[in-house]
Amino acid sequence: MSDAIADAKRALRAELRERRQLLTPQAREVAAAGITEQLDALIATHGATSISCFLSTTTEPGTREFVAGAVARGIRVLLPVTRTDGLLDWSVATPDLDIAEGMFGLPEPVGELLGPIAVNDVDLLVIPAAAVDRTGMRLGWGRGYFDKTIGSMERCPPVYAVVFDSEVLDEVPSDLHDQPVSGVVTPTQTIVLAPARR
């Protein structure tokens, strides 16, 4: 990755992180309710019975309510668990989900771990992002876990990134290893994108 792209990513991430910190608890609650509604509709549209999702941090658009509701309806939800080798293990969400702090201070499930290939069976991937642009390029938080996962899947299902409305941008800095997404979910809308294939 060129220094210019790396610098642009760092600067944009810092700005987005700061904006997220400024959101009020009420704004976060409204966003979480909107995300739940949008993701429920997305699952229905795709007829998904097995998905991957993530447990949101306090500054991310809330996904925990959605995960709990999906599990209660019998949908199989795989949650990511970070590994030191840059890959993700997966754990099946349960109604009485135990959550602990993962490697990077992120909320992760406690339970039986399935290996990285477990995600190959899902109908839909729901992943975190800092921002997504209108061509489908996603700016992550810089660790590359989801780019590696998407890039290694033989038959990748639709991939939707979850962001706040203001984080759907005209363009995000990207490099060759960055993987595009199929769409973006915000608290007010779901946008299907035609990703720029590499």
Rank of each mutant, 00 (worst) to 15 (best):
I5E: 11
G111Y: 05
A27V: 07
E65S: 15
R198W: 11
T57D: 02
E15M: 14
K148F: 14
V181K: 02
M103W: 09
A131Q: 00
R64I: 11
F164S: 03
D121W: 01
V30S: 07
R198E: 08
R28C: 13
T84D: 14
A93E: 12
F146W: 12
I51M: 10
R13F: 00
G47H: 01
E108C: 03
L106P: 08
P158T: 06
R83E: 14
G102Y: 00
A131N: 01
T82A: 13
V71K: 02
G102R: 01
L106A: 13
D170V: 04
T186I: 09
P80I: 03
A32H: 11
S182N: 10
F146Y: 15
T149H: 01
V172Q: 00
K9G: 01
D98H: 06
A70K: 02
Q189Y: 04
I51N: 05
S2C: 06
E15N: 13
L106I: 15
L113I: 09
G140K: 00
F66A: 11
A196G: 07
R19E: 06
T135M: 03
S91H: 08
N120W: 11
P187N: 12
E37R: 14
L124C: 02
A118K: 05
V132S: 06
E167G: 03
L78P: 05
A93G: 09
E154D: 15
I150W: 10
T49M: 06
D7K: 13
D123S: 14
D40R: 05
M153G: 07
L88P: 04
S50R: 13
L139W: 04
E108T: 05
R76C: 13
V77D: 06
